[in-house]
């Protein structure tokens, strides 16, 4: 189970000619750090890429936990018209394949001028339906008597949420945060489309504007909208790492 991690780690310390040696070397005989030293030259944007990924992975679940716990609180402890229908909608949305919406979402993000910015990756993930489901289950088991006691002491519903509910469901808060962090950290296809592909298309559209350059493609440069975030892109397209360096 752990072998791929081990092999990756071991190989990263081997000099190039030893990586593919036969028989395979499971313990490097003369370890080297040259691959690590070469990294900044090989992928100049690595630092920014890491900052982008970490910022998204830290912030997205922060909002996700807040909004989904608030909604879970409403579904668990309030009575209101349409509650059951609305909750069924929340559950059913999880069966919609995200990939089915990527083409229209891409066009939508262009129209909102958010494409090729971190907003395009951040915004769709801030209210996870699965989180609402889990928080509803957790908050259900918070005793009503505690809420009543808080209410008698004059607390408003948001105060109850903040000072009674959240401290009692802290394990779920942490679980949800970690799940959200992992999800955001491993998110691949949509960031690839919204950041890397978009940047490539912008570059193609711009090249078309320049006289004497022929770019094959279906894009009319004149119709490609103005950049929402001005900065120059590296001329080489550093797949698979989004080369967006735009701060949120």
């Amino acid at each position: 189970m752990c072998f791929p991690f081990f092999w990756m780690l071991v190989s990263s310390f081997k000099p190039p000619e030893r990586i593919f040696s036969y028989p395979p070397e499971f313990i490097p005989t003369d370890p080297t750090l040259e691959h690590y030293a070469d990294l900044p030259a090989l992928i100049p944007s690595l630092g920014w890429n890491a900052v982008n990924s970490i910022a998204l992975a830290v912030l997205t679940p922060l909002f996700g936990v807040f909004f989904s716990s608030l909604a879970g609180f409403a579904f668990a402890k309030f009575n209101f018209r349409g509650k059951h229908v609305l909750f069924a909608v929340v559950v059913l949305t999880q069966l919609i394949p995200p990939a089915a919406g990527f083409i229209p979402l891409f066009i939508e993000m262009i129209n909102l001028r958010l494409i090729d910015t971190l907003w395009a990756v951040f915004l769709p993930g801030i209210v996870p339906a699965f989180g609402i489901f889990l928080f509803r289950q957790a908050i259900y088991s918070v005793p009503d008597e505690l809420l009543d006691a808080g209410r008698i002491d004059g607390a408003g519903s948001f105060m109850l949420y903040r000072s009674v509910v959240i401290p009692l469901v802290m394990p779920m808060v942490l679980t949800q945060y970690i799940l959200g962090f992992i999800g955001s950290w491993n998110n691949f296809l949509w960031p690839l489309i919204a950041l890397a592909i978009a940047a490539e298309l912008y570059a193609a559209g711009r090249a078309r504007l320049a006289p004497g350059t022929a770019v094959s493609g279906h894009l009319g440069a004149q119709s490609w909208p103005a950049r929402s975030c001005s900065r120059s892109h590296p001329s080489s397209f550093s797949w698979p790492f989004p080369n967006t360096s735009c701060p949120i």
Partner: peptide, 23 residues
């Protein structure tokens, strides 16, 4: 309660339902 569940439904409408219908 409607206020508390609003963020989900706004986000779903904008980034879930609308793209689905547009698709």
């Amino acid at each position: 309660p409607y206020l508390y569940i609003l963020p989900f439904f706004v986000s779903f409408a904008v980034f879930g339902l609308y793209p689905l219908l547009y698709s």
